[in-house]
Write a protein that binds this DNA or RNA. Structure first.
Lengths: 208, 208
DNA sequence: GTCTATAACGGGATAGAC
DNA sequence: GTCTATCCCGTTATAGAC
C-alpha cells in the first residue's frame, strides 16, 4: 500500500520520501480544512511550502493527489490504532475494542483532521471510481480488525455474528462521525452513543 | 420550510412555483449524478431546460442553489415517508418503524437519487455553515420521528432510552447508506444489517 | 420572468531554466 | 528535483434585450 519500498533508503531517497510525505500531510490538513472540493493545488503548495509544479511532478494531477492522500490517511489511521498507544495491550480485549472504536472521537487536532479528511475522501469516492478501490480495502481491513477484537471479548460469537456486529459498529462510527463533524451532535454525546452501542452489541452476542 | 405560502395560488404564481420546483428537482438529479463538487450551473440549466441566467434569477448564486436544494430534498424525503405509502398505517408500529428506516435502501431511481444527493449535501455541510442549520433541523426531525415510532413499538422505554436508540439507528442508516452508495456494501447486505440493528435495539429496550 | 451573449475570474496544468 | 512564470480553459455571474 505504501508506494515506497520498505528497504533501507539512502540519503537522497530519504529526502524525497520525506518531501513526499510532507506534501501528503499538508494535503490532509488542507482537505480537513476546506474539503475535497475546496482543495486548491496552489493552497496545498503553500501549505507544504513548495511550488505547484513540484506537486504535479510528484503526483501527476489533482486526482493523483487525492488517491495518494487517501492511502496516506488510511495508513496513518491504521498506525495510530496500534502504535500510538503502546499500553493498549494492558487494557484487556474490551478496553482495546472501545479504544479502537472511540479513537476517532477526540478533538486532538491530528485525529480530528484525519477523521475530517477521511470522511471527505470517503464521500468523494461515491463519485470518483479512482478512490473506490482504496476505500473498499480500507473498510474491509477495519471491519475485520473490529470483528477480531469482538471475538476476543465474546469468544462464543459465531464468525457471522461477529462480522455483522463489526459492520454495524464501524458503519455507526462513520455515521456518528459525520454528525459530530457537521455540528449536529456534540462530541461527548457521540461518544456516549457509541459506547452504548458497543454494550448493546456485546450483550446481543452473549445471548445466543 | 417551504419558502412559498401555503395559500391557494393563482395561475401565474403557480407556473413560477412549478418552474422553481422543476429546477430544484433537476438540481437533485444533477447532484446525485455528479456530486456537489460536480454541480455545474450550466449542466443544471440544461437538465432543467432553462437558461443559466434564470437560475441565478431564482436562486441568487451557487450557494443559494445548494441551500434550497437541501430544503427541497429534505421535504421530499419527509413526504415519501408519510405520503407515498398510504397503507403504512396497516403495517402496525413495528412495520412502520422498519419501513421508515429501510426506506432509504431501495434502488428505485427517485429514492436512490434522494439518498445520494442528501448524503452529498450532508457531507458538504461540514464545510459550509450555510447548510448546517438546515441539516441540523432535518436531522432533529428525523430522530424524533424514529423515537416516536420506537416508543409505539416499545412503550416501556424511557424517553431517554428511546431517543438514544433513535439516534443510533438514524446515524447507522447514514453510515450504511454511504457504504452502499460507494459500493463498499451491496444493497441487500446493508438492509440485513439494518434490520438486525432494529432487532437488537428493540430487544435492548425491552430488557430494562 | 426568461432569454442570448459575454464579461470576469479562478484554478489546473505545463514550459523551460536551474 | 525544484523553481518561476504563464497559458488557457471551464465556470460563475451579470448586462441588457424582449
Amino acid at each position: 500500500m505504501a508506494g515506497w519500498p520498505c528497504e533501507v533508503r539512502t540519503g537522497a531517497e530519504e529526502d524525497v520520501a520525506d518531501r513526499r510525505a510532507a506534501i501528503l500531510e499538508a494535503a490532509a490538513r488542507v482537505i480537513a480544512r476546506r474539503g475535497v472540493r475546496g482543495l486548491r493545488v496552489e493552497e496545498l503548495a503553500a501549505e507544504a511550502r513548495v511550488s505547484t509544479a513540484l506537486i504535479y511532478y510528484h503526483f501527476k494531477d489533482r486526482a493523483g493527489i487525492l488517491r495518494q492522500t487517501m492511502e496516506f490517511i488510511s495508513d496513518r489511521a491504521g498506525h495510530y490504532t496500534t502504535d500510538l498507544d503502546p499500553k493498549a495491550a494492558q487494557l484487556g480485549p474490551r478496553g482495546e475494542l472501545e479504544r479502537a472504536l472511540l479513537m476517532e472521537f477526540q478533538d486532538a487536532p491530528l485525529v480530528r483532521e484525519n477523521s475530517t479528511a477521511w470522511g471527505e475522501l470517503r464521500a468523494s469516492a461515491i463519485f470518483d471510481p479512482d478512490l473506490r478501490e482504496d476505500l473498499r480495502r480500507a473498510s474491509l481491513v477495519w471491519v475485520q480488525e473490529i470483528a477480531e477484537l469482538l471475538g476476543r471479548v465474546q469468544p462464543l460469537g459465531t464468525p457471522t455474528a461477529l462480522a455483522s456486529a463489526a459492520e454495524r459498529l464501524t458503519a455507526l462510527v462513520e455515521g456518528l462521525s459525520g454528525r459530530w463533524l457537521s455540528g449536529v451532535l456534540p462530541l461527548d454525546h457521540a461518544r456516549n452513543l457509541l459506547g452504548e452501542a458497543i454494550d448493546v452489541e456485546l450483550q446481543h452476542l452473549e445471548r445466543r
